[in-house]
């Protein structure tokens, strides 16, 4: 029961069904396609994006969250989680192997989407400034990789905790798209917690900074990664306690 074997097993599981491929393909094609479309319709339009980050990355991120949550909820749906724990009674090891695979795949999706969108602007939009001169420029293009990976781990942990596909997908979509905005609107309380919301920080982490948040982009990334790690630990504790 080597770590490499466990990771290979999880990789085969993810790659041998169609839905992760669809999610990954749609995420990459969506980010690149929407970026390309926007700069064709309105040349130079992307240059004004806040902090230089690409707003369409959020669309790709949502699909990655679905991919990550579903990678484990289908195991509960079809009880293959029991086969997993039969083969790997060390449940912590089994969950960590899945986490590694999901995080790497999500990171690659984030990177390909971001680089692809950058290439689309460079090819299609003579007005936008796509030169990568400063470290901030590089950060904006490369940071989606670790941000996607950390958010995917967050979604995976949610999937492990709630087990049902519909519930997990609802949570990982509704929370970033609506939940965080609604929380921010709560008088008094909202503005106080808003800087600490995970997807506010995930968004901030993919910018060059300069927003009104307490964290720098690197700080936001570290914060989201910490949240993901904490939720993953909670998921591992629960998985070890309950019956499979």
């Amino acid at each position: 029961m080597s770590a490499a074997g466990l990771i290979a097993a999880e990789r085969i599981k993810l790659a041998s069904v169609r839905s992760p491929w669809w999610c990954a393909g749609l995420a990459v094609a969506g980010v690149i396609g929407l970026t390309g479309l926007l700069v064709l319709v309105e040349p130079g339009g992307m240059a004004d994006a806040p902090g230089g980050s690409n707003p369409f990355l959020l669309f790709g991120l949502m699909l990655v969250l679905v991919l990550a949550a579903v990678s484990v909820t289908t195991e509960y749906r079809y009880s293959t989680i029991r086969m997993t724990f039969e083969a790997v009674p060390n449940r912590t090891a089994a969950v960590l192997a899945k986490t590694v695979v999901v995080a790497v795949v999500s990171g690659v999706i984030g990177l390909v989407a971001s680089l692809g969108a950058w290439a689309a602007m460079w090819l299609l939009d003579p007005l936008s400034d796509t030169a990568l001169r400063t470290s901030d420029d590089w950060w904006v293009v490369l940071s989606p990789a670790p941000v996607f990976a950390a958010c995917a781990v967050l979604a995976l942990a949610v999937g492990i905790l709630v087990r049902h596909t519909a519930a997990a997908v609802s949570i990982v979509l509704v929370w970033p798209l609506m939940g965080e905005q609604l929380v921010s609107f709560i008088p008094g309380f909202g503005p106080a917690v808003q800087p600490w919301l995970p997807f506010v920080n995930a968004g901030n982490a993919m910018t060059a900074g300069g927003g009104d948040l307490p964290f720098s982009p690197v700080g936001s990334l570290a914060y989201v990664t910490g949240l993901a790690a904490a939720l993953l630990v909670a998921a591992i504790v629960v998985v070890n306690r309950r019956d499979a």
Partner: peptide, 8 residues
């Protein structure tokens, strides 16, 4: 295949 890989 994935079962086999998980147990070497």
């Amino acid at each position: 295949r994935w079962l086999a890989r998980a147990n070497g």
